[in-house]
């Protein structure tokens, strides 16, 4: 869906973190959402109502569709969180409460 204009390693400081256990190459200063989209991830969570797949929509902190769990804290906005080396990112797990 997305590509980088230049590889993550070129220009800027490279940062690596993990998404669902997979190593993601990112660039210092960019958002978790941008890094994940550039790495080919489109689905960030399942909606808590119908478990439908969701991904980033507005990229400016308003829609809350890019919610992920970061270092154990659920409900983090991937588009508003700057990548940090070694962070553990997972799909938001809040979904699945019985109706």
């Amino acid at each position: 869906m997305f590509r980088r204009l230049s590889p993550a390693e070129a220009g800027g400081t490279p940062v690596t973190f993990r998404f669902e256990g997979r190593e993601i190459a990112a660039r210092a200063g960019e958002s978790v959402a941008a890094a994940l989209l550039a790495a080919g991830e489109a689905v960030f969570r399942a909606s808590p109502v119908s478990a439908a797949p969701r991904g980033p929509f507005c990229m400016m902190g308003a829609c809350f569709d890019c919610l992920v769990e970061i270092d154990g804290l659920p409900g983090c906005q991937a588009c508003m969180t700057i990548v940090r080396p070694g962070m553990e990112v997972r799909r938001d797990r809040i979904a699945g409460a019985p109706a």
Binding site: M1, F2, R3, R4, L37, M59, M60
Partner: peptide, 14 residues
């Protein structure tokens, strides 16, 4: 706007 944000903020494009 999200596409523009990805471009400006991370040089990530479709």
């Amino acid at each position: 706007g999200a596409l523009q944000t990805l471009l400006k903020g991370a040089e990530v494009v479709p």
